[in-house]
């Protein structure tokens, strides 16, 4: 999930009686699975929640380029280098169309990016973890994109039309990334040296828990979930999505011949699901507050890019203006 703990501004759902006629009509449309489009009336809370969620999602795509950028200059073969470059390029593209979807709600891309740089807007906690060996490029694709897909497949049915359509397109590419990531790990485990196999296990050990944290806190600790679910911005609860991810991922983990750093992880015959240990929530909230291993570096890199690029953007604007004047004068 690329958006965690999105503030909705309401801790309690309004009853139908408490709603204004407009709100009631809106809610009935949502309940009937009719997509809300940019020009339709929507409650202010719905609009704000969507702006927060979509911008968080877009920021995550852009910040998410950095842990991969850390290895794109060191990719080991031409094939792997080209794959990683294509993946990073896709992510920049996802960022672009998510910001566009967000702008249909009247928000401004530059303003939202400024909030990110000031630490007022969030992005997925996962990207605050470092990528320390090459197998991380496989594990990020498999686990991080994998977790994102579980969430995004559901978001294809989100109530806001432009967001839903962006998700359809993004999901196709993400599935491809996930398969590619898994293939990196599989090749290393099947044909790699002992050192390469150790890289894979090390990457999984480091990224396993942070990937599970991507789904956000338990539902009963997630005060905004209820409103988001009622508005059908969210379609499933955090715990349900996390369980889906674990259930689909553990067999793949076993197929690799690797283990998860969780002694409590085991199949439960009765529930038909995997049981797993408790997430270190203190770490989750610490990272969200800015105290993860790479929070400062990630934001500084992004801020520096935008700050140092200011003169370039100004030049482009000035040139476009001159060109327009020349065309008009001609």
């Amino acid at each position: 999930m690329y958006a965690q703990l999105v503030e909705t501004g309401s801790k309690r759902l309004k009853t139908k009686e408490e709603m204004s006629p407009q709100e009631r009509e809106f809610q009935e449309k949502v309940d009937a699975e009719i997509k809300i489009e940019a020009k339709n009336w929507m409650p202010e809370g719905y609009r704000k929640t969507l702006v927060r969620q979509i911008s968080q999602h877009a920021h995550s795509e852009v910040v998410g380029m950095l842990p991969e950028g850390n290895w794109v200059t060191r990719a080991p073969t031409l094939k792997r280098k080209l794959q990683l470059m294509a993946k990073i390029q896709d992510e920049a593209g996802h960022g672009l169309y998510l910001y566009s979807a967000m702008e249909t709600l009247g928000a401004d891309r530059d303003e939202e990016i400024e909030k990110l740089h000031q630490g007022k807007a969030k992005y997925s906690s996962i990207f605050n973890y470092p990528t320390l060996n090459w197998a991380d490029m496989g594990a990020v694709g498999w686990l991080v994109d994998g977790a994102a897909i579980v969430n995004q497949v559901v978001l294809q049915r989100t109530s806001y039309g432009p967001y839903s359509r962006a998700m359809v397109r993004i999901c196709k590419e993400e599935s491809f990334h996930q398969r590619q990531g898994y293939q990196i790990l599989l090749d290393l485990m099947r044909e790699g040296t002992d050192e390469q196999k150790a890289m894979v296990q090390d990457a999984i050990n480091r990224l396993w828990w942070p990937s599970l944290m991507m789904f956000g806190p338990h539902d009963d600790e997630s005060p905004n979930s209820q409103q988001s679910l009622a508005w059908k911005i969210k379609r499933k609860g955090n715990d349900e999505l996390r369980q889906m991810f674990i259930d689909q991922t553990v067999p793949q983990l076993e197929f690799l011949g690797c283990t998860a750093p969780d002694p409590d992880l085991k199949w439960n015959e009765e529930t038909g699901h995997y049981d797993f240990g408790e997430i270190n929530w203190q770490e989750f909230y610490d990272v969200l507050k800015g105290n993860g291993p790479c929070n400062r570096e990630r934001i500084n890199t992004r801020k520096k890019a935008i700050d140092e690029g200011r003169w370039v953007r100004e030049a482009a604007v000035a040139y476009a203006k001159k060109q327009k004047q020349r065309t008009q004068a001609a």
Partner: peptide, 28 residues
């Protein structure tokens, strides 16, 4: 590739990586 995440605008991230991808593909 060294410029990944450091371009002056998101559109440029996309364009730079696109050009880089073409060049490394041609190199191959």
């Amino acid at each position: 590739c060294e410029l990944c995440g450091k371009a002056p605008a998101l559109e440029e991230e996309l364009a730079l990586m696109n050009v880089a991808l073409d060049l490394v593909g041609q190199a191959r």
